[in-house]
Amino acid sequence: MTILEFIFYGFLISAALVIIRVIRGPTAPDRVVAMDPFVTMMVVLLVVTSFLSARSIYLDIALVIAILGFIGTVAVSKYLEGGELKEGVE
Protein backbone atom coordinates (compact mmCIF):
# COMPACT_ATOMS: atom_id res chain seq x y z
CA MET A 1 0.00 0.00 0.00
CA THR A 2 1.73 3.16 -1.17
CA ILE A 3 -0.04 5.69 1.11
CA LEU A 4 1.31 3.96 4.21
CA GLU A 5 4.83 3.79 2.81
CA PHE A 6 4.65 7.53 2.00
CA ILE A 7 3.76 8.31 5.64
CA PHE A 8 6.45 5.93 6.89
CA TYR A 9 9.34 7.46 4.91
CA GLY A 10 8.13 11.06 5.37
CA PHE A 11 8.01 10.72 9.13
CA LEU A 12 11.30 8.79 9.22
CA ILE A 13 13.09 11.65 7.39
CA SER A 14 11.49 14.23 9.72
CA ALA A 15 12.52 12.24 12.81
CA ALA A 16 16.11 11.98 11.54
CA LEU A 17 16.19 15.76 10.96
CA VAL A 18 14.82 16.61 14.39
CA ILE A 19 17.60 14.57 16.04
CA ILE A 20 20.05 17.22 14.74
CA ARG A 21 18.35 19.80 16.96
CA VAL A 22 18.43 17.40 19.92
CA ILE A 23 22.19 17.08 19.53
CA ARG A 24 22.97 20.74 18.73
CA GLY A 25 20.44 22.52 20.95
CA PRO A 26 22.34 24.92 23.21
CA THR A 27 20.08 24.65 26.26
CA ALA A 28 18.02 21.94 27.93
CA PRO A 29 14.61 23.40 26.89
CA ASP A 30 15.79 23.26 23.24
CA ARG A 31 16.35 19.54 23.60
CA VAL A 32 12.98 18.98 25.23
CA VAL A 33 11.23 21.06 22.54
CA ALA A 34 12.88 18.88 19.87
CA MET A 35 12.28 15.62 21.73
CA ASP A 36 8.51 16.12 22.14
CA PRO A 37 7.78 16.04 18.35
CA PHE A 38 10.19 13.09 18.05
CA VAL A 39 8.11 11.04 20.48
CA THR A 40 4.84 11.92 18.72
CA MET A 41 6.43 11.01 15.37
CA MET A 42 7.39 7.63 16.82
CA VAL A 43 3.74 7.21 17.90
CA VAL A 44 2.55 7.83 14.33
CA LEU A 45 5.22 5.44 12.99
CA LEU A 46 3.94 2.73 15.35
CA VAL A 47 0.36 3.30 14.14
CA VAL A 48 1.56 3.00 10.53
CA THR A 49 3.47 -0.17 11.45
CA SER A 50 0.31 -1.68 12.89
CA PHE A 51 -1.60 -0.87 9.69
CA LEU A 52 1.20 -2.31 7.52
CA SER A 53 1.42 -5.58 9.44
CA ALA A 54 -2.35 -5.72 10.30
CA ARG A 55 -1.62 -6.42 13.97
CA SER A 56 -3.39 -4.22 16.53
CA ILE A 57 -0.86 -4.80 19.36
CA TYR A 58 1.26 -1.87 18.08
CA LEU A 59 -1.68 0.50 18.68
CA ASP A 60 -1.57 -0.24 22.42
CA ILE A 61 2.19 0.44 22.46
CA ALA A 62 1.60 3.73 20.59
CA LEU A 63 -1.00 4.83 23.17
CA VAL A 64 1.37 4.07 26.07
CA ILE A 65 4.28 5.92 24.39
CA ALA A 66 2.05 8.98 23.79
CA ILE A 67 1.12 9.08 27.50
CA LEU A 68 4.75 8.57 28.61
CA GLY A 69 6.02 11.32 26.29
CA PHE A 70 3.54 13.83 27.71
CA ILE A 71 4.43 12.88 31.29
CA GLY A 72 8.15 13.16 30.52
CA THR A 73 7.81 16.64 29.02
CA VAL A 74 5.75 17.91 31.95
CA ALA A 75 8.17 16.36 34.47
CA VAL A 76 11.23 17.96 32.83
CA SER A 77 9.49 21.35 32.67
CA LYS A 78 8.56 21.17 36.36
CA TYR A 79 12.18 20.28 37.16
CA LEU A 80 13.56 23.21 35.12
CA GLU A 81 11.09 25.58 36.76
CA GLY A 82 12.49 24.61 40.16
CA GLY A 83 9.09 23.67 41.55
CA GLU A 84 8.02 20.72 43.61
CA LEU A 85 6.33 17.79 41.93
CA LYS A 86 3.92 17.40 44.88
CA GLU A 87 2.45 20.87 45.24
CA GLY A 88 0.07 21.42 48.12
CA VAL A 89 1.61 18.69 50.30
CA GLU A 90 3.53 20.22 53.21
Binding site: T27, P29, D36, I67, L80, E81
Partner: peptide, 23 residues
Protein backbone atom coordinates in the same frame (compact mmCIF):
# COMPACT_ATOMS: atom_id res chain seq x y z
CA UNK B 1 -4.39 8.65 20.06
CA UNK B 2 -5.26 11.67 17.85
CA UNK B 3 -7.54 13.21 20.50
CA UNK B 4 -4.92 12.57 23.20
CA UNK B 5 -2.16 14.26 21.15
CA UNK B 6 -4.43 17.21 20.30
CA UNK B 7 -5.29 17.75 23.98
CA UNK B 8 -1.85 17.23 25.53
CA UNK B 9 0.34 18.99 22.93
CA UNK B 10 -0.61 22.56 23.88
CA UNK B 11 -0.46 21.74 27.61
CA UNK B 12 3.06 20.33 27.36
CA UNK B 13 4.31 23.21 25.21
CA UNK B 14 2.81 25.77 27.62
CA UNK B 15 4.60 24.08 30.53
CA UNK B 16 7.94 23.93 28.73
CA UNK B 17 7.66 27.59 27.59
CA UNK B 18 7.09 28.79 31.15
CA UNK B 19 9.91 26.57 32.41
CA UNK B 20 12.28 27.94 29.75
CA UNK B 21 11.39 31.53 30.67
CA UNK B 22 11.74 30.97 34.41
CA UNK B 23 15.04 29.08 34.09
Amino acid sequence: IMLFLLVTGPVASHAIARAAYKS
